[in-house]
Every structure is written in C-alpha cells, then in structure tokens.
Nucleic acid binder design. Structure first.
Length: 893
RNA sequence: GCGGACAUAGCUCAGUUGGUAGAGCACCAGCUCGACACGCUGGUGGUCAGAGGUUCGAGUCCUCUUGUCCGCACCA
C-alpha cells in the first residue's frame, strides 16, 4: 500500500500515459482491416483558438464513442483536423498588427498572409496539445488542416465542378455586408437582435403640388437611395396617385409612385419608400418593377458619391442624424415615434450589417437540397435528438443561395481568373497561364477567398484523400456519427450532407448527435463579456481530465444544455479518488496472489471456493455491463456514467470490498485465493468499463493489475456477451440471498443509527426467519451480518421474547425476517418509540393507498392480473410489517 | 407570426412502451471500523408549474393556461 498515494494525482499519470499511448500507436486506424470500421470526423476547431468547455463536451462524447468502439473490436478512426477559420484568424492577426500600428493594406496581401501563416505556426499546436490533455484518442497521423494541399485540391475541384454544372455562379445581388470586415457574409452569419430605435414619418411632396404622401422608415438615411415609393394597388386612398411622382426630400429626384401587393394597407400610412439597393424587400420590389438600384454606401459603410455631396463620407449613424435634422428644418418630418425592431448584426464583429448590392460568388443550393432532404426524411441520416430533423428540413425547404465569396485574404482564393482583354472568366483547378477563351496572358485571379464553411463542407472526404481514390475512403466513408452542437447544423452539417451526396454519391454520416451548450452554474451562456467562461485546461489541472470528462458525461442528457458547476466536478474527482483507493486496497490484497495458469479472466477452477459475496459481485458486474452496453448503444451517456458510478461505489466498494475483508485477512487459503481471483477479475472489468469515460486512471490501474493484457485502451470492452463464461459464475438466486443479507445489515444499522447506539458498541441481535429458506440465507450470511452490523452475538431463532426490543421486519420478495435487537440497558426507549411511530406512519400511508386501489372494483376488474396480484402481495406484506411494528411499540410503552 | 424545447426535493438533474417518484450535491445526527474525511453509517426533504380531459390507474398520453429558453420569418 505504501507505494501508492492515498490521493489520486492526475498530474502524475495523465501526460505520461498519453505519451505512452501515442508511442504505441494505439489510436491509429488501418486503411484496410478485417475489423469492421468505425469512424468519426472531428469538427475541426479554429487552428489558433483555445480549447473551451464546448470542445471539452464535444470531444469527450466522441472520445467515449471511439474508445468504446475501439475496445469493442472495431477498426476505429477518429479523424482530427484544424480549421483556418478565415474571418476569426484574420481578425486576430489584424488586431495584433494594429498594436504595432500596421494595417493589412499597408503591408499588402502577400506579406499579410505570410504573417497569418507565422501566427498559425506559432499557435497551431496549442489547440492540439490541449486536446491531448483532455485525452482525445485521435489518429494524429492523419491530422489535417483546411489549407493543406490535399484539401485545397479538393476545394478547387469542387468549385470548378460546381461552376461547370452552373451550380456556382457569379452575380450582382443584394447581400449582407459587414462594414467592419469590409466583406460579404452569408445569411447565417447575420444575427438579428431587437434594438430600441425610432420610426420617422417623412413627407414626400407630390410633384404636382397637390400635397404629400407620408412614408415611414427606421433608417432615414436610406432615403438618399430611394428610387420609388410604393402603395397597395387596391388602396383607395392612393389609387389616383399611382403612376405619378413625388419629390425625394433633400435630393430632389423624382420618384415614381408604384403599386405592389407587398404593401400592407393597414400598416402605417400605407406608403412605403423603396430603397432597392439597401433593403431585401425593396430589392425584390425593385426587381419586379425594374427600378434603378442606387448604391449609396462605400465598403466601410460610409456614404458614397451617389449621395448628395454634403453627406458623402459620413457613416450611417452621422448621416442619419444629419438627414433627420435637415428634414426637420424643411418641415418634412411629420413625427418620430419610439420603435423596436430587429437589426442584423455581424456575428463576428457585432457591427450592424448593411444590405448592399454587390457582385459575389454564389452556390445555387436548391437542387442539392432535394437529395439532402430526402436522406433525412428516409432516415438514412438520423438526428439525435430527433427534434432537430424538423429544424433541418424547414431550413432546407427555405434554403437560399449561399454567398461563398469573402473579401478577405486568409483562406482559399477563388480559382477564377479574369481576362482583361476579352473579359472571359477562366475557372480552373490548376493556375492557368492564359485565358482559355482568347489565350491572352493578361489574366488576373479573383481577389476573394471562399467562405470557411465551403472547405469544411468537404471535410468528411477531403480529409480522406479525395479527389484521389483512397483505401481510407473505401473503408471509412460514410462515417458513422457526427457529434456537434446545434449552432452549426446549417453552417456545417447541412453543407456536408449536400456536398457529400453531390461528390461522393453517399451520405457523409449515419447519425448526427446534437448536444447542448455548456452554460455557467446560473444557466447563462459562457461569454467573454460576462467573464463567466471556464477554462477546461484549468479544470483539468485542478481536478484531472478524467474527473472533467466524467462530469460532462454524467450530466449530458439528450439535447439538453449543461449547467456546469465545480460542485459536480468535485463529486467526479471524489469518484476518481474512490476508484483509486479501491484499487489501492485491492492491489494490496492481491500482493501475494498468483493468477492461475489457465485463461485467467474466465478461470472457473476455484468455483468451489467462491463465497456468496463473490457470486454476488459477479452477478452485479454482469448487470452493470448490460446497463452500460444498453446506454452506450443508445448514446445515453449519462445513464452509462450513472450505472458505473452506482456499481463501483455502492456495490463494489460499499459492499463487496467490505464483505471480503474477513476472507482476505482470514486464515483460509482456498477461500482467500478464490476471492483474490474474483477481486482481480472484477477490478479488471471495472477499469475497462470505465476506460472510455476515464481513460487515464483506468489505464494506470490496469497496468498494475495482476491479471491484464497489453493495454486497457486496446483490451476488450466487457459485455455480457464477451464475458459469458465468467458471468455464468454469477447465480441470481445466490445474489438474491446476499441482497437479503444486506437488507438485514441495513436494518440493524438503521436501528443503531436511529437509537444513537455508538458504532463502537457491539450489540446482540436475534433474527427470526419466517420460513426455512430465510433460515438458510441467514445461516450463510451470519458472519457477514455480525461483522458489518457490529454484532457481538447473532442468534437465528424461530421465536423470541421481543420485550424491550427494537424490531424491524425485513421483507424481500418471498422472504420475511424479523430483526430483533434487545435495547434494555443500551438506551432509553424514546428514540425507538419515535423510530417505530415514524415507520408505522410511513408504511400505513403506503398500505392505505394500496387498499384504496384494491377496494376499487374497476381496478381489480381491469388491471392486468399480475398488477393486481402484486398489489395484494404488497398489501399483505405491509399489513404484516405494520402489525409487527405496532406490537413492538406496545411492548415498549 | 410559425416552429421547437423545458417546468420533478434547497440546487443540478434521472425517471424508455401509463402501475403510484429516484440519484448526486447541500442539510441533520453519529463515526479515526486495518482503501479512501475527496471517507464511513444512519436520517430529513417532493400537491411532479396550474387547470381540465382520456383511463381502473397519469410525472408519463391529450387540451388549455402561466412562466423560462431557443430557432425561423416579418418588421414601412
């Protein structure tokens, strides 16, 4: 015992163990194998990012599955990667340069990209080493970065292919523009937030001088880009004005009054100003009516030359103030009202997004959405929890074209070259030397890069060597499970499904496991601004990776968020320590143990000497294996963790280790040897069962076991099927007998506790079994009962004088035993009277309920026979117990 | 506006075809009993958000109400 500390110290174990696993290549998958494949692709984290709690959860889920399947005989591949994360990474480097007073435009594209690469080389390992600290058992030999050559090839091939199929096109459309990024962003990157603002009602004078129309707006500065006003064609108030014009305030332009069904007669004045270049609805109206699209914004969100000179160069906020004040001066402002409306914000920078008319690259997703919908409808791909299916299908049904070009420098540059001579666009996988149309050498590559999600969307096959034909793809595509949060179902999951079907003609994965978010202990999102983020690496340092992993797994419930608290972590850490100490005890007991020569894990030769407790723990091990297997098969991770916790703590430690102490400290070598064998076998299974959840401590203990093979990480996962021979040693009837013994011990302990009999005080007990079977059980359990209940004497009798005694009836199935403890001289009877009254009260309530049920004719008539029968038995048993307690009470009073 | 999720012990959550509520933490009482005080033993906590319905029987199924959260759409 001396060589092991009585505290489990994760830091002594984790890094050395991980290194050893890596050195032995235990995580590496085989491209070809006779084993069945099992593959998960890791959602690639931002290459220069930190590991956060969301990753910890996401990765632990995947690692549990992977380790479980690896131990279950699968050729497992957990394919890791990192993402160049275009906007995020570029922003970080830009911020860093800004500290030195440098802007990216100062140093130019080439040098800037060089700086980002430097940054990547400096910080790119951090996230990987953090993943290793968590215990992620990825096949690192396959680590892929989204800008790697192979992936880049895949990206170009897909782009060119889709372009040729006319699924990718270049067009001038209204897009979401982030003035801070000076780039287009996709619909998904816009976050709508309710903002308290105002609505301004503005007079638009009729050109014929007959009055004015009133249009309301929440963005008055956009009136500078108005090219029409619009009314509902059936609106009697304005019918006569349709086709006429109004004067645009502050600008003087004549605007046509048009009619369109889009306008709601009931809303406001029923007149809408139309700014086709800066509003999505207006854009559509503009297209229907062939209106001029007047772009009034520069890239940085300031007003451009299409606005009157005095507004040029102002940002939208200042322009708004000035427009409003001028309207007021000219008496064109009718009223201002407070108004709350939702405003699009850039997900990355938080700035207000401006709809802007701009030329960009798009993917036409409509056709690809059709098969992507079908595979989910047909359950070829299944979402867990299932409720996400609806969300996914809804989005697919309303899918918009995907704007894939970004005006950034960090990423996959669009493989399109413009000819300055013939204007032809050459789209090619290899950099062309000349225009494919006119052979001019005067060509220039498109400056834009592709949306990061474009390359991520190819991840399930680009990481496996596509477009080359590789063994890896044959073996591992489609992958089995995708584990991720719901925030990227559209960004990533949907795109992988569409692109996988398009380019691999098969789904990328079978199951999508969507987990919740990690929140703080108050249920708030973890965020920088609230400063409530918890660093998983700090948690690992303080509590150990196993404790963190176990906490997450015991709290994860399908589709629900996790409120993370260190209290739970502490409890998991205590659990790890419990296991550690149980192992410490066991290893001490096993010091002089010599494993039998024959196949040790299923050795049955010593069956004759097995104690009831041995049989019992084997039986319970089997039950635990079944529970864990069921839970993991259904991805019910908290059930699996809970089953392990209960089994290890409350069965193995609380009872089995206590039961065997007299045996292992005793003087019967055959019994001791048998128990040693069982103990070593059970502990071996305990650590293997725990391994997916707590890989470090389980490997550490495993390596010290007298019975083991090479490594826990690659040993077989214990299941009822795999353990059939050994588990056959567990006998249900014997296990039940031990359960009766436990119940008797608990009853005595209860009497002791409630009567405050000091633990050190040895007492006498009489046990009265009401049948031969009970007598036999007590006979077998007697010595355990004496030890564990602290008895000096234990008589098994058919009848006893119960005067001045505490009496507790113990009833389990068909076994009924009265536990009788003489109290005379030990305590006064007040506590015992209280205890009895409390128990009588409790049992009477139960009995009452059952009686009520049984006296209901309809229940007896309609309920299944076995339910009625069970109720009757319960009633009889309760009545008997109550009687027994009542008579004891009388004897005390 | 449409859709989804949730409401169970003080806290965090289990509760899988409807059979009469469980765990961990916290709390109370007592314990150096040859692994562990990150421990051991015993114990106290619940009108299962509210109302109605189906049923012999509802935490579980249906309807409505209230409250919380999350998507999507609209927002002149």
């Amino acid at each position: 015992m001396s060589q092991l500390s009585d505290r489990y110290k994760p830091q002594d174990v984790e890094s050395k163990t991980y290194k050893w696993w890596e050195e032995n290549s235990y995580f590496e998958a085989q491209d070809t194998s006779t084993k069945p494949p099992y593959c998960i692709i890791l959602p690639p984290p931002n290459v220069t990012g930190f590991l956060h709690m969301g990753h910890a959860l996401d990765h632990t889920l995947q690692d549990v599955l992977i380790r479980w399947k690896r131990m279950s005989g699968f050729n497992t591949l957990w394919l890791p990667g990192t993402d160049h994360a275009g906007i995020a990474t570029q922003s970080v480097v830009e911020k860093d340069l800004a500290k030195q007073g440098i802007k990216r435009h100062d140093i130019g594209r080439e040098e800037f990209v060089e700086k980002v690469w430097e940054w990547k080389h400096q910080y790119g390992d951090r996230i990987v080493s953090q993943m290793k600290r968590l215990g992620d058992s990825c096949d690192w030999s396959r680590l892929t970065f989204t800008l790697d050559e192979g992936v880049s090839k895949a990206v170009r091939k897909v782009f060119v292919d889709l372009y040729k199929k006319q699924r990718i096109y270049k067009g001038t459309r209204l897009i979401n523009w982030s003035p801070k990024l000076e780039s287009a962003i996709s619909d998904l990157e816009v976050e709508y937030k309710d903002v308290k603002g105002s609505i301004w009602h503005i007079k638009y004078p009729l050109s014929d001088g007959s009055g004015y129309l009133t249009a309301a707006t929440t963005r008055p500065e956009t009136l500078l880009g108005d090219t029409a006003v619009c009314v509902n064609p059936t609106d009697e108030r304005y019918k006569e004005h349709i086709g006429k014009t109004v004067e645009l305030p502050l600008v003087g332009r004549k605007l046509k009054i048009i009619a369109d069904d889009y306008v709601d007669k009931e809303f406001g004045s029923g007149v809408v100003k139309i700014t086709p270049a800066h509003d999505f609805n207006d854009y559509e109206i503009g297209q229907r009516h062939q209106l001029e699209m007047l772009n009034i914004l520069n890239k940085d969100g300031t007003l451009n030359e299409n606005a009157p000179e005095k507004f040029q160069g102002l940002d939208t906020k200042k322009a708004r103030e000035q427009v409003v004040s001028e309207l007021e001066e000219q008496g064109l402002l009718l009223k201002v009202e407070p108004y709350t409306h939702s405003v699009g914000h850039c997900q990355r920078t938080g700035c207000v997004v401006e709809p802007l008319l701009s030329e960009q690259w798009f993917v036409n997703t409509k056709d690809m959405a059709i098969p992507a919908k079908r595979v989910v409808e047909s359950e070829t791909i299944v979402f867990e929890p299932e409720s996400w299916t609806k969300t996914y299908l809804h989005w697919m049904n309303n899918i918009q074209d995907w704007c894939i070009s970004r005006q950034l420098w960090w990423g996959h540059q669009v493989p399109a070259w413009y000819c300055s001579d013939c204007q032809h666009i050459t789209v090619k996988e290899q950099d062309p030397a000349e225009c494919e149309n006119c052979n001019s050498k005067n060509i220039q590559q498109d400056e834009d890069v592709l949306d990061t999600w474009f390359s991520s969307g190819l991840w399930p096959f680009s990481t496996m060597g596509w477009p080359e034909e590789t063994e890896a793809q044959k073996t591992f595509y489609p992958t089995n499970v995708l584990v991720t949060g719901h925030d990227i179902i559209f960004f990533w999951v949907a795109r992988m499904i569409m692109l996988g079907l398009e380019f691999k003609q098969d789904v990328p994965f079978r199951t999508v496991y969507i987990h919740g978010l990690i929140r703080d202990s108050q249920g708030r999102k973890m965020s920088k601004s609230l400063n409530n983020s918890i660093d998983p690496v700090e948690m690992i340092e303080e509590y150990g990776a196993d404790a963190l992993r176990f906490t997450l797994m015991s709290q994860i419930a399908s589709g629900r968020d996790i409120k993370f608290s260190t209290q739970r972590l502490e409890s998991s850490r205590n659990f790890m320590n419990k296991i550690w100490n149980a192992a410490r005890f066991a290893l001490n007991v096993l010091e002089d143990f010599e494993p039998p020569k024959e196949e040790p894990l299923t050795a049955v030769s010593s069956r004759a000497h097995l104690s009831d407790a041995d049989v019992w723990i084997i039986q319970k091990t089997g039950e635990c294996e079944k529970a864990v297997d069921d839970a993991l098969s259904n991805m019910r991770f908290s059930d699996a963790a809970g089953a392990l916790y209960d089994f290890v703590w409350h069965e193995f430690c609380d009872w089995y280790l206590e039961f065997i102490k007299p045996v292992v400290y005793g003087d019967k070598p055959e019994e001791k040897a048998a128990t040693q064998l069982v103990l070593s076998q059970v502990l071996n299974r305990v650590v293997r069962l725990l391994h997916p959840f707590s890989p470090f401590i389980s490997e550490e203990i495993y390596q010290k076991l007298p019975i083991k093979s090479e490594a826990c990480v690659i040993d077989q996962y214990p299941t009822v099927k795999n353990d059939k021979t050994w588990l056959a040693l567990g006998v249900e009837d014997v296990a039940f007998e031990v359960d009766v013994t436990r119940a008797v011990i608990t009853a005595i302990r209860n009497i002791r506790g409630e009567n405050r009999i000091s633990p050190g005080q040895k007492i006498k007990a009489k046990l009265i079994p009401h049948a031969d079977k009970g007598q036999k059980i007590l006979g077998k359990g007697q010595s355990s009962i004496m030890t564990l209940a602290g008895l000096a004497e234990c008589e098994i009798v058919s009848e006893a004088d119960k005067n001045k005694c505490a009496v507790t009836p113990v009833v389990l199935k068909d076994i009924s035993i009265d536990v009788v403890i003489p109290l005379e001289g030990l305590v006064d009877f007040e506590e015992e009277i209280k205890r009895l009254e409390k128990n009588i009260d409790k049992l009477s309530k139960e009995e009452n309920q059952i009686s009520k049920r049984l006296s209901n004719d309809n229940f007896v008539k309609n309920a299944p026979d076995e339910v009625v029968e069970e109720a009757k038995q319960q009633q009889a048993s309760l009545q008997q117990q109550i009687e027994s307690l009542k008579s004891s009470l009388l004897r005390l009073k």
